[in-house]
Amino acid sequence: MMYARRWAQSWLAIGFLWFLVAIALAPSNKIYQQGLVAFVWLPTLLLLWSARGALVEGWSAQRALWLSVLLLLGWSALSLVWSGTEDVGRELKRLLYIAVFLLFFPLLATAGVPRLIRLLQLGGVGLAIASLYSIIQFYGVQGFPWIFRLYGVGELSHPILGAYVIGAALVWMIHWPPQERWFQVIWALSLLCLGAFLALSQSRGAALGVFVALVAMPIWCRNRRSYLIAATTIAIAVLGVVMMYALIVERGSSYRLEILQASLQMITLHPWIGLGLGTFYTISAVGEQFDHTHNMFTHIGVELGIPGMLLWLGIWLCVLREGWRARATDFGKGLMGLWLFSSLAMQFDAASLTGTPRAEWFISWLPVGLATVLVWVRARAPGCDKISGSI
């Protein structure tokens, strides 16, 4: 099996690390996208035929999830018939990118779930380095006051979307600590850097998502460590609110309720077919124009109508079901945390489901891709998905 050979798995591993880390450290978005073509799309397409058995296995075990994905991608493609986009080919290419990205995970997972967890750990360390560099660059080199919202490097430059990437990394790093003592030191320092970036970005949506995901850990972990993490999170949150209360309330609700109301009204204008994939639109609320709905579900409703919104909801609930069924495993626990964080994060700003790979993918397609890995987690004996020291 060509996809299982060392060179093939190394190629796929590089691709996954590139997706996770280069979003912050790549010199430009163009280079980031070109790297994904070279390290993710190309090897996946080349190795698909040799991995057809694994793909059939994944389809058989998670038929509802894969069928929902196919229906959403199909409905999105069909909506191009009435869409107002000027570049239909670009939108079709983006749908193909999503499909290839999701097919990438079964190929990567067959090398072993511990290896995948280790890659996520390394990705978290890389994002922690980017967080530290961003803090030094923004407050040290550029000299901005500490009360200013942090703008990170690369695609972390958006204070909200960048915080979602860092928040996701923080959640998976806490759920998947390493076993080796030397790596535990690096892991602990990484948590400090990620947490500092999250706090300094002043993104309330990302902070709320991390808070709820960590406080809820005892629901699926049910061990002393999870209760300790939940209690510590509450204590840190209380301290943070006390210290940053003025900054937290200064921006009010950022018109989110007004934008939601206007978004729902726009959905009612085209409830069944939407405006079509890729159609440019603006939301009028409180006398201002907003580029999007600041909410993943309503954005899908505007573009793809209620059918598209229900299909995405179906995918998201399938991910929850897969994570809950595997909650006895380390990987399942981490996916549950990431799912809950992402569910909250996508309510406040993320509004790009079918765009090229970007920050929003960390709270949309990444959890879906990781959910497909659970086929191989459940196929193994209990405890075999413990974190390994090898990569």
Rank of each mutant, 00 (worst) to 15 (best):
249 V>W: 05
258 E>T: 02
222 R>F: 14
259 I>Q: 00
278 G>H: 00
241 V>Y: 06
226 S>I: 02
236 I>D: 07
257 L>C: 09
229 I>F: 11
233 T>A: 11
230 A>D: 10
221 C>N: 12
240 G>F: 08
263 S>A: 13
274 G>D: 00
248 I>K: 02
252 G>I: 01
259 I>R: 01
275 L>P: 00
218 P>V: 02
272 W>Q: 03
233 T>K: 04
230 A>R: 03
278 G>R: 01
238 V>Y: 03
227 Y>N: 08
260 L>W: 13
268 T>I: 09
274 G>F: 00
219 I>R: 12
252 G>Y: 03
253 S>W: 08
250 E>Q: 10
277 L>A: 07
270 H>A: 07
226 S>L: 05
240 G>K: 02
234 I>W: 07
234 I>M: 12
278 G>F: 01
255 Y>S: 14
243 M>I: 10
251 R>Y: 11
267 I>K: 00
267 I>H: 00
259 I>P: 00
219 I>L: 15
254 S>K: 11
220 W>F: 06
244 M>T: 09
234 I>S: 07
262 A>Y: 04
272 W>E: 09
255 Y>H: 14
269 L>S: 10
237 A>Y: 04
271 P>Q: 01
252 G>F: 03
258 E>V: 07
273 I>A: 07
227 Y>A: 14
258 E>N: 07
263 S>K: 00
222 R>C: 14
233 T>G: 06
271 P>R: 00
218 P>C: 11
265 Q>C: 10
258 E>C: 12
249 V>K: 05
260 L>I: 10
234 I>D: 06
257 L>Y: 11
